[in-house]
């Protein structure tokens, strides 16, 4: 099968939209709520999950014929845990301030249902290149939702995007204006409602398919 055949294209594209892990499969919600209070950690988290899912998929796919059936889940878990630990260490070493904000949630990628789900459902039955595409697709689908939610939460809750003050200072109430930041946007409860709105919009747009 050629590298970029139609089937492979489908494998890559479907989790981005029609089979989106957060919006359609409803996986990975808790980290979607916790790390999206600002855009930067949301982007870093999305990228981390993409990288980890892709490489975990490849490794398991390469090993799939050799894994004893009885310890299948354990082997998958060990591979994921090792990858997460490596990524977490890299983050702490090179982007420390973001890693502080992400704190425990990077470690929790191990328990992210998206990973285990894709490993079991796809990597165990498919070749390495397809598994890689599937991992990247799912990771990016997840990252997309995180970026959207993080964008709105940071904009409405802090008035900034990626740290840059977007709402001009003069508009704020304490400076004589009328505007206030919406404090609830910084809370996970509101993130859940935003994810729900995303799913609502997503289903409405994709109703016919």
């Amino acid at each position: 099968m050629s590298l970029f055949s139609k089937e492979n294209g489908e494998v890559f594209k479907s989790p981005l939209n029609l089979n989106n892990p957060v919006a359609v499969q409803v996986l990975g919600i808790c980290s979607a709520l916790a790390v999206t209070s600002q855009l930067k950690p949301a982007i870093v988290m999305g990228l981390s999950v993409t990288v980890i899912t892709a490489f975990a998929n490849v490794i398991i796919s390469l090993l799939r014929k050799t894994i004893p059936n009885r310890i299948r889940i354990i082997v998958q878990l060990v591979v994921v845990a090792a990858l997460v630990t490596i990524v977490s260490n890299i983050l702490k070493a090179y982007v420390y301030d973001v890693s502080v904000q992400l704190s425990v949630y990077v470690g929790l990628i191990i328990t992210n249902c998206i990973l285990m789900g894709r490993l079991e459902a796809f990597a165990m039955q498919n070749g390495p290149w397809e598994s890689f595409l599937d991992g990247v697709g799912n990771g990016l689908g997840y990252a997309f939702v995180l970026v959207v939610v993080g964008f709105f939460r940071e904009l409405l809750g802090f008035g900034t995007i990626l740290g840059f003050q977007v709402v001009p200072d003069c508009c704020y109430m304490e400076n004589g204006g009328l505007y206030l930041n919406n404090g609830m946007m910084t809370m996970p409860a509101m993130a859940l409602i935003l994810v729900a709105c995303f799913i609502w919009a997503h289903r409405s747009i994709n109703k016919e398919k």
């Binding site: 014929k65 050799t66 894994i67 004893p68 059936n69 310890i71 082997v75 090792a82």
Partner: peptide, 18 residues
């Protein structure tokens, strides 16, 4: 791949590598 010996050896090797 389902024999006990293989499973144990596999698990040990994996643990050591990781």
């Amino acid at each position: 791949t389902n024999s006990n010996v293989y499973t144990i050896v596999y698990a040990s090797v994996m643990v050591i590598i990781v």
